[in-house]
Amino acid sequence: MITYLEFEKPLSEIEGKAAELRALAKSGEGVDLSKEAEALDRKAAEMLRELYKSLSPWQKCQVARHPNRPHCKDYIEALFTEFTPLAGDRNFADDQAVMGGLARFDDRPVIVIGHEKGHDTQTRIARNFGMARPEGYRKAIRLMDLAERFGLPVITLVDTPGAYPGKGAEERGQAEAIARSTQKCLQIGVPLVSAIIGEGGSGGAVALATADRVAMLEHSVYSVISPEGCASILWKDAEKMREAAEALRLTAQDLAKLGVIDRIVPEPLGGAQRDPAASIAAVGKALGEMLAELDGKTGAQLMKARRRRLLDLGAKGLAA
């Protein structure tokens, strides 16, 4: 069962009708409806192409948040072998909004860390919708330390609406945990590659995405603030999220132009949610290529280049 987004409504009607016709044909009324169903399929495919050819930034936000979009766990299960989750921050708790551990990527041992949103009510609550608390970032720090000690590359998968704005999270130093995680990203002398697979929500994303190479799925977004949040502050009206999404330049295409990300990973037609396997494979390919680009570099070279990239970032704006 596909969940349709608001802008996909006309599509849902056509695809729904096609499914109805097929059901009717199956029930054996005698009338041959397959031609009509096929015509509708063609129309639907055409419409899907049209819709996804030029998604607006706000529509991309919706696709990036699509509940059926593959999440971190799906990527880890498909792309890695011998995944061995490692838990806890050794101080307070294990935050399930951030998952990570040892795994093999193309047989090579690595540390993989990512935000996980969950896929149904129960897992979404357990994962806190991918909104990490300080313990999540401190777990990430611990895993990055482990990677550094044993010379393992780090792969991060970013998909979070942002860090969790809660009372306990603040009391336990949400800001400090994010700052230290970003700092740790700059301190490890091993390859660090990142893929933004859904939402790159503000500081909560930066804490894991400060990498040597950053890839981004075609319809994912990465922003300093959610369009709704920006609209309510600057437009004093949360309903102006379309305008805000436009102004924030949060699409993969704009971020590539600004030099914030290195590559855009194409998504299957209709978004990653329509063909998770293809999307996961494409991200896997990008991760492999990015790691290969870093092969043979020493820890000092990696860290120096990682910093240089940030220092030079944004010098030209969109005109770059």
């Binding site: 970003t182 990203c185 930066v206 300093v224 600004l258 914030v260 970032l313």
Partner: peptide, 9 residues
């Protein structure tokens, strides 16, 4: 936008 976010790292 994103360039302000990038001031964190």
């Amino acid at each position: 936008g994103i360039l302000s976010l990038m001031q964190m790292p």
